[in-house]
Amino acid sequence: MKRVLGIVLAFMMVFAFTSCKGKEKKAGTSGDAKEVSVLGDVNGDGVFTVAYIAVTTTLAPYPIDILNQFQAYADKHEWELEVYDGNGDVNTQTEQVASVISDDIVDLVVLFPVDSAAAVTYVKDFSEAGIDVITITSDVKAEGQSMVYCYVGPDQKNGLVGPGANYILEHFKAGSNYVILSGWEAQYDYIVREASVNEFFTDAGYNQLAVKYCGASRDTAYEEMSALLVANKDIDFVFALSDEFALGGVQAIKEAGYKPGDITVVSLEAFIDSMEQVKDGWIQLTVTQTGTDLMTKLAEVIYSWMAKDSIDYVQLSTGTTITADNAAEWETKLPY
């Protein structure tokens, strides 16, 4: 009985693995034409292979959008795209980096690190293996910078947080009370954004009542904001570090009986859902952050890498500020 089960299991395993193997082979065949030298092919296997080591390709809309755009580019230009999904976990990503290096078939790595401090080690490993790296969205810190070809990403401080912060600085005088709705505690993006908000407001004399971490859940933002509105009667404005939390916050504000504009809400990372709220005046301002913004820039960078041009280290992708004026127009253009 035991042996029968063992054999059945063995067959299942072999079947599962070989069915995957078929796919892998098919992907490899496009590199047969060896005479034609392929642009960007460093290791000489006749095909330009780029590994996209992503923080995640399933857990958040923005990385998913980047992947979709990247895949479209790769299909169009016949790049071989190897996708690694880090699932938001440092250990997984560390193993994937080791895996990419040991495979030795990759010409260029595009790295969206889970953690920018750990990325320094990844970049060092890649540079020892002779593979060039482009980092996106979270920059590696000073030490590893000289080994990265380029950093492509949004300007977290001036590009994403800036418009909202400037709007607030224009409209509110010292002594105003505000709360920040943030994402996961201790996650890179949100730490940078929170620090940027604080930096903008250092001299403004605003009172920060609370910073609330909402994970990635609109529901948590809604509950946290409801509790905050009970605890503090005099909130003047809310700074949400993503539209996910702005939407949760707005729902709580509506329910507490405020009118549009009573409490100013500024945000970033525009969602389709929030366009309605922007038009109605619940959210005063938000900034787009889409895969298209980033991919346009990233493609340019990859072309200049292929041509071996030297370019500036930092290449910023640009977002658009959305207010009540242009919300209707963006409603159809946003990817998520």
Binding site: L59, A216, D219, L247, Q251
Partner: peptide, 13 residues
Amino acid sequence: VLYAKVMSVQPYS
């Protein structure tokens, strides 16, 4: 209920 509360949900919420 979780979905209906805010009309949005992430798979890992």
